[in-house]
Amino acid sequence: MRRARLLAAGALVSALATGALPAAATAAPAPAAPRHHPRVHAVAETIRQIPLQGAVNVRDLGGYWTYTGGQVRTGLVYRADALGKLTPADVDTVAGLRLTKAVDFRIPLEVQYDGADRLPAGLATTSRPVSDLGLYGMLLTAIGSGDPVKQEQMLGGGRAEAFMRDVYRTFVTDPADRAQFAATLRDIADGAQGPLLYHCTSGKDRTGWLSYVLLRALGVPVSSAERDYLASNTFRGAYDARVRDGLRQSGRMQNPDLLIPLQEVRQDYLDAATSRMEADYGGFYGYLTRGLGLDVPTLARLQSKLVR
């Protein structure tokens, strides 16, 4: 059985390298009914949310089918938004995930304002800041000004959308960002490493990019990896709307809809990163190996550990 898994992993790594897929793997198998998972409910086929009161975008990354007919294991990798507002009941739920590592991609300014992670006893946060190109500081400035003219000048006229595309390109171009993502992928691939969670503030951009990369590295079809990325809009939609309503009612923003491009994930943001990846590395495999510095044995370990 182990030899079969390794052979499948090798075939997938080869397919990534050549940009092709095995002849028999032109489409992913139809998803099976999701298995029951304690305190988890399935949304949109295989997307599995961990319901918490103090965080809205916490998910098990498992359950997706791969091109080779495997399925990503559940209970090993979790993606999340900030964990600084977890309730005691939430912390108990997180303790049930049996995490051995929690990686925080937030920069110090975000931690300062939003609070450090609240985690089960014995689990410490591993800080791996990934640049937001000043997005958080810009938001503090714009909202804090209370000036609708300044807010329009900073965020209106397509400027917020353009800024987000620049943030995503930086995930690919910035060596420090690549190093943080690569270190986390190596942790995930480590056979001695137990369940791992990574997160940023909203769990949608830095976390969304790494989740997209990981799923594709495991051989999950692009369409499924994109669906996982875009699902943040579903999980965050109601919460983000309440934030905008609060800003309007408090008088800090006359037009809080200016924030929507910053609150949402969008296909063109992801496309900005993948287009940069194509330009700089010639494709996904080049990004994995030359951009992130992951060798073939590491990619094979990811497959062996996470795909059944």
Results as ranks from 00 to 15, higher is better:
1 M>L: 13
112 Q>I: 05
140 L>Q: 06
140 L>F: 00
57 N>G: 08
40 V>C: 10
123 L>S: 04
68 T>D: 14
221 P>D: 01
303 Q>A: 13
161 E>A: 09
96 G>K: 13
164 M>E: 02
184 T>F: 09
117 D>P: 13
155 L>F: 02
214 L>N: 04
301 R>L: 10
253 M>A: 08
143 I>D: 01
299 L>D: 03
303 Q>I: 13
270 L>I: 10
76 L>M: 14
141 T>I: 03
236 R>A: 06
185 L>A: 10
213 V>D: 04
11 A>V: 14
66 T>W: 02
289 T>Y: 00
71 Q>W: 04
157 G>M: 01
301 R>W: 00
161 E>R: 08
52 L>G: 05
59 R>Y: 07
50 I>N: 05
72 V>G: 04
93 T>V: 14
73 R>S: 14
88 P>T: 11
211 S>W: 12
265 V>A: 01
76 L>W: 15
6 L>D: 15
14 S>K: 12
204 K>W: 03
145 S>Y: 06
4 A>H: 11
193 Q>E: 10
162 A>C: 04
202 S>H: 14
17 A>Y: 10
148 P>R: 06
140 L>N: 03
87 T>Y: 11
89 A>W: 11
261 P>C: 10
216 R>S: 13
89 A>M: 08
208 G>S: 04
213 V>R: 04
6 L>T: 15
65 W>Q: 11
267 Q>K: 12
18 T>R: 12
15 A>W: 07
128 R>M: 02
106 R>Y: 05
7 L>P: 10
276 R>E: 15
57 N>M: 11
218 L>K: 08
289 T>D: 00
165 R>A: 11
25 A>Y: 14
248 R>P: 12
289 T>E: 00
100 T>S: 13
189 A>T: 12
213 V>A: 07
52 L>C: 09
99 L>C: 10
58 V>G: 02
173 T>E: 09
87 T>I: 10
219 G>W: 02
273 A>D: 03
238 A>H: 12
307 V>E: 03
114 D>H: 08
192 A>D: 07
201 T>L: 08
185 L>E: 06
92 D>L: 14
130 V>N: 00
79 R>Y: 10
249 Q>A: 15
239 Y>T: 14
250 S>F: 09
283 G>A: 11
273 A>P: 03
28 A>W: 09
15 A>G: 13
190 D>Y: 09
78 Y>W: 15
298 T>N: 04
305 K>Y: 02
252 R>H: 14
91 V>Y: 03
49 Q>T: 15
279 A>T: 15
22 P>T: 07
193 Q>D: 07
65 W>K: 08
265 V>Q: 02
101 K>P: 05
266 R>E: 08
16 L>D: 04
52 L>F: 06
189 A>P: 05
238 A>N: 13
264 E>W: 12
286 G>L: 11
13 V>K: 01
69 G>T: 02
183 A>G: 08
274 T>P: 08
227 R>F: 00
113 Y>N: 00
245 D>K: 12
258 L>G: 01
254 Q>E: 12
33 A>Q: 12
254 Q>H: 09
303 Q>H: 14
196 L>Q: 05
204 K>G: 03
183 A>L: 04
213 V>L: 07
174 D>K: 04
6 L>V: 15
293 G>T: 08
250 S>N: 14
22 P>G: 10
127 S>N: 00
302 L>H: 07
34 P>E: 01
152 E>I: 10
304 S>I: 13
228 D>S: 07
226 E>P: 06
229 Y>C: 06
26 T>G: 15
170 T>L: 00
62 G>K: 03
